[in-house]
Write a protein that binds this DNA or RNA. Structure first.
Length: 132
DNA sequence: TTCCTGACTCCAG
DNA sequence: CCTGGAGCCAGGA
C-alpha cells in the first residue's frame, strides 16, 4: 500500500497510484542477482518517455512494504546513479555485490548479461514494441 | 498559480 | 565512450 503522501490523486493521463504500484510490483519481480533500468520499466508500464518518474517512484519505495529491491534498478549504462539516495552511498553497491553482481566504479559489470527485461521476462504482449 | 529540480533517456558532436 | 541540450512527469516552494 502506498503512503498517504503518494495517494493524493491529481489529474493525470494515467492513475498515478497504479503507476507507482506497478513500478513496485515490477521491481519486486526482479530476480536476485539481476538488474534492470528505469527506461525498460517505464516502457513496460506504458509511460515510455517518463523514465524519471520511475526513479521518483523508487525514491518513495523505501517507505513501502514489503521492501523494494531498488538497488537492482540502475540507469541504462548500468551506473548506480541512485546509490547516493540510499541509507548510505555504499549500500546499493554492497547489496548488489551480496547478490553476486560485480560493481566496479559505481557501474554494474556484465550489465547486458545481467540485464532483466520485464518485457521479455514477464512475457507481456505489447502491440507497440520498442521499435521495428 | 508558476518555476525549479531530479534515482532518466535520446540526439548530436 | 564522454559531454551538452531538450523532453518527459511529479513534487515542493
Amino acid at each position: 500500500m502506498l503512503p498517504p503522501s503518494l495517494r493524493k490523486a491529481k489529474t493525470s493521463k494515467f492513475d498515478k497510484e497504479n503507476f507507482f504500484e506497478k513500478v513496485f510490483v515490477v521491481v519486486k519481480k526482479i530476480p536476485r542477482g539481476r538488474v534492470t533500468n528505469y527506461g525498460s520499466i517505464a516502457n513496460y508500464l506504458g509511460t515510455g518517455l517518463s523514465a524519471r518518474t520511475v526513479g521518483w517512484a523508487m525514491n518513495s519505495s523505501h517507505m513501502v512494504v514489503p521492501p523494494i529491491p531498488a538497488h537492482r534498478v540502475v540507469n541504462r549504462n548500468g551506473l548506480l546513479t541512485g546509490k547516493n539516495n540510499f541509507a548510505t552511498p555504499t549500500l546499493m553497491e554492497e547489496l548488489l555485490q551480496a547478490e553476486g553482481v560485480d560493481v566496479v566504479d559505481d557501474k554494474v559489470q556484465n550489465f547486458e548479461q545481467l540485464f532483466w527485461n520485464p518485457m521479455i521476462e514477464l512475457n507481456v504482449k505489447k502491440k507497440s514494441m520498442q521499435k521495428a
